[in-house]
């Protein structure tokens, strides 16, 4: 039973980057960006292909991040410059990326056996791989969290937050909110692609289907984190996203331990999000009814 703790910690911290990216778009920018399901495998595809072809893992990871940035910016351009509905813009980009990812990889799956990845050094150490890998992902997640926190308190970061809070107001103060949206989406998908690149290297392969359900899982993480911490500031929101991701992976591992089939996971996660979103609506309805009755 205890063995699910290290695996959920490792996965939770790795996928925390996705949760942070989604928090930035859904919560800060108020832009429901669905690019994530495509930019996550994009990060994996670019990194795996480059590493497979002999490029060093650090460079490969950085290029994967840039690919994610470009993908996010394109979604932003679809939505702001071409006036495409934001949900549709993300779906379009996600669909386009499916083909792009297959092109990049040249096939549906690239194994990284016998290739040097970011984790190769760790694997030569004479200890269990678990703890150093957990520490690695903890440092990366913490670094990303802090960088976002700092950025969102800079002059431009404030403008980006206001874009999601009161777009008309910040435009009247001289900010091109189209640019802010495009940049915010780029930044979010940079982190998501970084997650894809790191997770592909960690698990030793990249697969074109590895992004399916990524948004829903990320949303579930954020909702869990928000339920636990009720964040009112940016610093607490990003914290909630990271912890929520870990708790989410723990719940999933627990569910599987209790007999949930891996194929049922997406349904379980989806229902979790539906229930979390339904509670306030149902509660609101009940209160309305009570009010009408004069209670």
């Amino acid at each position: 039973m205890l063995y699910i703790i290290p695996i959920s910690l490792e996965q939770g911290l790795a996928y925390a980057l996705v949760a942070l990216g989604i928090a930035l778009t859904f919560r800060i920018l108020a832009f429901p960006d669905l690019t994530v399901d495509g930019s996550f495998p994009l990060g994996g595809a670019v990194a795996a292909r480059l590493i497979f072809d002999g490029v060093d893992p650090v460079t490969s990871t950085l290029i994967a991040m840039s690919a994610g940035f470009i993908a996010g910016c394109l979604t932003g351009i679809f939505a702001t410059k071409f006036k495409i509905n934001s949900l549709l813009a993300g779906i379009l980009m996600m669909t386009i990326l499916y083909s792009v990812n297959l092109r990049i990889m040249g096939r549906a799956n690239i194994p990284l056996l016998n290739r040097s990845t970011l984790f190769t050094t760790i694997e030569t150490w004479d200890i269990s791989r678990d703890i150093p890998v957990i520490i690695f992902f903890l440092v990366v997640a913490a670094l990303c969290k802090i960088l976002i926190d700092v950025f969102l308190h800079t002059e431009y970061g404030l403008a980006l937050r206001a874009t999601g809070d009161n777009e008309q107001m910040i435009r009247s103060l001289g900010v091109n909110t189209d640019t802010a949206t495009i940049f915010g989406l780029g930044l979010s998908n940079t982190m998501v692609a970084l997650a894809g690149a790191l997770i592909a290297q960690d698990q030793g392969f990249s697969d074109v289907g590895m992004g399916i359900g990524m948004i829903v899982a990320g949303l579930a993480s954020i909702i869990i984190g928000e339920a636990l911490f009720k964040p009112t500031t940016v610093v607490r929101l990003t914290f909630a996203a990271v912890i929520g991701s870990v708790v989410y992976r723990f719940i999933i591992a627990l569910g599987m331990r209790l007999g949930l089939a891996p194929t049922d996971l997406k349904m379980a996660t989806g229902l979790m999000v539906v229930i979390a979103l339904a509670i306030p609506a149902i509660r609101g309805k009940r209160e309305k009814k009570l009010k009408l009755r004069g209670v």
């Binding site: 950025f151 308190h153 800079t154 002059e155 431009y156 970061g157 404030l158 403008a159 206001a162 910040i170 103060l173 001289g174 900010v175």
Partner: peptide
């Protein structure tokens, strides 16, 4: 802070 920067360039300086 956002109002003080109305119409000015906003960079990565602390807000």
């Amino acid at each position: 802070c956002m109002a003080e920067l109305r119409g000015k360039k906003r960079g990565l300086k602390w807000g």
